[in-house]
């Protein structure tokens, strides 16, 4: 999994407010986990496809960079990731893009987007690393490929860690 990270800082860095409680803030992601675990294996794939179809369009401002997305080399899947940090309320917003030919990548990106974008730094860093397992995808997708979603999430985490350190 490769991506480009664009750290666009918006809002003033001064006067960072107190961290929000992480349990409450991570609720959207926890709800997605619940949603997946409530259905049988094969329906989880359909649900993942639903999420792939609901990956939001990249905002105008990033569309130009999208074309610089890494090329597909070997088994790399091109993925575009941009992060915007709002230090005044310590939240981060994510923007993903991936080609139509990789719906699995789009699906996982969309889950991270719906589950964590706009959440607090603490909630993002507190989210479980094994998102694929949390979604109950272990039997449906090869474990080796499943780690792609962990790698994607790792990239999200690192962008937040890099920003606050």
């Amino acid at each position: 999994m490769t991506s480009q990270s664009t750290a666009a800082q918006t809002g003033g860095a001064a006067g960072a407010s107190a961290a929000q409680p992480s349990a409450a803030a991570a609720a959207p992601l926890a709800e997605i986990f619940e949603e997946f675990r409530a259905v049988p294996d094969q329906q989880r794939l359909k649900l993942l496809l639903d999420y792939a179809n609901r990956l939001p369009e990249l905002p105008e401002a990033y569309r130009e960079n999208f074309h610089q997305m890494d090329e597909v080399l070997e088994c790399q899947t091109p993925l575009f990731l941009a992060t915007e940090f709002r230090d005044e309320d310590r939240t981060a917003e994510f923007f993903f893009a991936a080609p139509e030919e990789v719906p699995t990548t789009r699906g996982f990106a969309s889950i991270i987007q719906h589950g964590l974008s706009g959440q607090s730094y603490d909630a993002i860093l507190g989210a479980p690393m094994d998102i694929g397992e949390q979604l109950g995808m272990g039997r449906v997708i090869a474990p080796l490929r499943l780690r792609a979603v962990s790698a994607m999430f790792g990239r999200v985490r690192r962008s937040v860690e890099g920003h606050i350190s």
């Binding site: 496809l49 088994c75 699995t104």
Partner: peptide
């Protein structure tokens, strides 16, 4: 496919 959802699209 490598991508397990591609057939479904």
């Amino acid at each position: 496919n490598e991508d397990v959802l591609l057939y479904e699209t």
